[in-house]
């Protein structure tokens, strides 16, 4: 039994199965993060004290000046670096796919390896951020802003980890498929690339809404 259009495109839809599948999955993900962001908006507008940090907490954190907001505890420089890292990884994953299209497997390994390093770098910086919060006794329960921060960035980090596993598989053992079914392997890289762009996009929304606004 052979399922049609697993590798080649169906003429009238112009898509192979997995490509339509990943777009639908991403639509579902848009609804998930859409609900999370909407909840954030609703909680923030619904509670006048949402961003206000009490004086005692600000003092314990050695923050200078008056009238502190919860977002002051987040590190904008680290998040900015992370934004650059993710955007760069979106470029490298396109390069890895393009290299495969040009039948240059060595270049694919290089660009895909860079993408994986970027993902690891992102997670490393994320870990530094999280541990600095925990070391100052800032937890999800401390305030609703921090609850939103940890939930949204935590779910995003889970998506990065999920992507990382697939990227590592395609870089390592999964790349054997290039010998047996090259077109199918190109499709796989394209599909995970679409997912990776989405993960990137979520962060591009998370960064300003949590750190800057």
């Amino acid at each position: 039994m052979q399922i049609p259009y697993t590798i080649e495109e169906r003429p009238d839809t112009g898509l192979y199965n997995a490509k339509l599948g990943i777009w639908l999955f991403l639509a579902s993900e848009v609804m998930l993060f859409g609900a999370l962001f909407s909840s954030y908006v609703l909680l923030r507008t619904g509670d006048p004290g949402f961003m206000t940090m009490s004086h005692d907490v600000a003092e314990a954190l050695h923050l200078e000046g008056h009238a502190h907001r919860w977002s002051d505890v987040l590190s904008v420089p680290l998040a900015f670096v992370n934004t650059l890292v993710l955007i760069f990884s979106s470029v490298t994953i396109v390069m890895s796919w393009a290299s495969l299209r040009l039948k240059d497997f060595g270049k694919f390994r290089l660009w895909m390896g860079l993408t994986i390093l970027c993902a690891l770098g992102f997670m490393g910086i994320k870990a530094i951020e999280y541990s600095s919060k925990f070391s100052h006794h800032l937890y999800p329960e401390t305030s609703n802003f921090l609850g939103v921060y940890f939930t949204l960035t935590g779910l995003h980090a889970l998506h990065v980890i999920g992507g990382l596993i697939v990227l590592a598989y395609l870089w390592g053992p999964g790349s054997k498929m290039w010998k047996s079914q090259p077109q199918r392997f190109v499709n796989r890289v394209e599909t995970v690339g679409l997912y990776w762009h989405f993960v990137d996009l979520v962060w591009i929304f998370l960064f300003p809404t949590l750190y800057l606004l």
Binding site: L24, M31, L32, A35, S39, Y139, P140, E141, T151
Partner: peptide, 24 residues
């Protein structure tokens, strides 16, 4: 496909409210 994810978001929030004592 499109209606379940918001419940998943809500479920995650409620789970955190119960387990980590957040206040969503």
């Amino acid at each position: 496909l499109l209606a379940f994810p918001p419940l998943e978001a809500a479920g995650i929030f409620q789970l955190l409210d119960r387990v980590l004592n957040t206040s969503f």
